[in-house]
């Protein structure tokens, strides 16, 4: 069977662990328990063209820059999810920096940007203009919610598809 390693990249508290929990265990908790180091999970998905793919999910401790520890976790990744917290604009900036650092490490790899916490519309801080600009550059962006499950399955299987294309 095909196995692919993917990393969850983003600033702290953007919802990386929650997205994995929603995807792997269909669960969500409002309580924040920060990740130290890395946590490994696996899940089988079907790519859009019908292949079974075993995803090895590396849920990495969040940070606004790429730490040395994170650099070593990255090795061997076939792709990554770049996650921001839509209610905190600075996490968008962190994501852009992280994307650059990751690409330097891994070379160009498929990734999808997730604008998480889409359920918190009242506190939303990301202008559509910012999003449009990235779409123009060819990025794939999805509004997700680990809380409601919005676009979570889609995000992972879309990434799987992208990785299989390579």
């Amino acid at each position: 069977m095909i196995q692919k390693k993917i990393c969850m990249i983003g600033d702290f508290s953007v919802g990386k662990t929650s997205l994995v929990a929603r995807f792997v265990r269909q669960s969500f908790s409002d309580k924040y328990l920060t990740t130290v180091g890395v946590k490994i999970d696996t899940k089988l998905v079907k790519s859009t063209d019908g292949h079974d793919v075993k995803l090895i999910l590396w849920d990495i401790a969040g940070n606004d820059t790429l730490t040395t520890a994170a650099t070593s976790y990255l090795r061997g990744s076939a792709g990554f999810l770049l996650i921001i917290d839509g209610t905190r604009l600075p996490t968008w900036e962190s994501a852009l920096n992280l994307r650059e650092a990751v690409t330097k490490q891994l070379g160009e790899k498929p990734f999808i940007m997730l604008l998480n916490k889409a359920d918190l519309t009242e506190q939303w801080e990301i202008d559509q203009e910012l999003i449009d600009e990235k779409v123009q550059e060819g990025w794939i962006l999805l509004k997700t919610s680990a809380k409601t499950g919005l676009n979570v399955e889609e995000a992972f299987s879309e990434l799987a598809t992208q990785m299989l294309k390579v």
Binding site: V36, G37, V38, K39, I40, A69, S72, Y73, R75, G76
Partner: peptide, 13 residues
């Protein structure tokens, strides 16, 4: 098959 030693700290398995 990587050429150097890899150290992965705090891996929750």
């Amino acid at each position: 098959n990587l050429p150097h030693t890899q150290v992965l700290q705090f891996m929750r398995v």
